[in-house]
Computed example of a mutant assay.
Amino acid sequence: MWATLGIVIVAILIIMAEVPSLIKNKAKRELWVFSVLFVIGVGLSIARGLNVSIPNPLDVLIIVYKPLIDLLTSLLHS
């Protein structure tokens, strides 16, 4: 609970520091990229603060490439 509140407070402070300059410079693309990455980062941080198990991105690559690795290994060891 306290971790989530702390993350939200820090996120609000970062938004207050960064977003006005992006709006002032009319940097719409940068604002969109900042917003998307920031929401993902804050969401993951809150999940970690609540002890939610977050899968490792490398696990997805292992699942995708494991059949190919097994095939190549079997071909090379034959």
Rank of each mutant, 00 (worst) to 15 (best):
V52H: 09
I69G: 01
I23S: 02
A27L: 11
V39W: 11
K28T: 07
L31E: 03
L22C: 07
V8T: 10
T73N: 05
W2E: 15
V52Y: 14
L5I: 15
I54C: 04
K66H: 03
L44D: 04
S35I: 08
L72W: 10
S53I: 06
N25C: 01
S21N: 11
V33M: 04
S78G: 13
P67Y: 05
S35F: 13
A3C: 06
L68N: 06
L31D: 00
M16P: 00
I63M: 13
I46P: 09
V39F: 15
S21P: 00
A3R: 11
A11W: 06
A17C: 09
V10T: 10
I23L: 13
V10P: 01
I23F: 04
W32Q: 12
N25H: 11
F38E: 01
V60A: 15
R48C: 04
K66F: 13
G6T: 12
R29A: 11
E30G: 15
S35Y: 02
L68A: 12
D59W: 03
I14W: 09
I12F: 12
F38H: 04
N25K: 14
L5C: 04
V8D: 01
S78W: 05
L44H: 07
F34W: 06
V64W: 11
S74Y: 04
L58A: 14
V8I: 14
L76D: 02
S78Q: 09
L71Y: 11
V10M: 05
N56C: 05
P20Q: 02
E18Q: 08
V64T: 03
S35T: 15
V64D: 07
F38T: 02
V42L: 01
V8P: 00
I62Q: 12
L50A: 08
G43Q: 01
G49M: 03
I63W: 09
A11V: 10
E30P: 00
R48F: 14
A11L: 06
K24M: 09
G41N: 10
V39T: 15
G49S: 06
K26S: 06
V33L: 07
E18T: 09
V60D: 14
L44A: 11
F34I: 00
I63Y: 09
M1A: 13
L22S: 07
A47F: 08
V64H: 07
L22R: 07
V33I: 15
L58G: 11
P20H: 03
K28M: 15
I54Y: 01
G6Y: 08
F38Y: 10
L75C: 01
I7K: 01
K24V: 01
I40T: 08
T4V: 14
I69P: 00
I54G: 05
S53H: 13
G41T: 10
I15N: 13
V39N: 05
W2A: 12
E18P: 00
L44C: 08
K24Y: 12
I23K: 03
V64Y: 10
L61S: 12
L50V: 07
M1C: 08
L37A: 05
D59R: 02
P55E: 09
E30H: 05
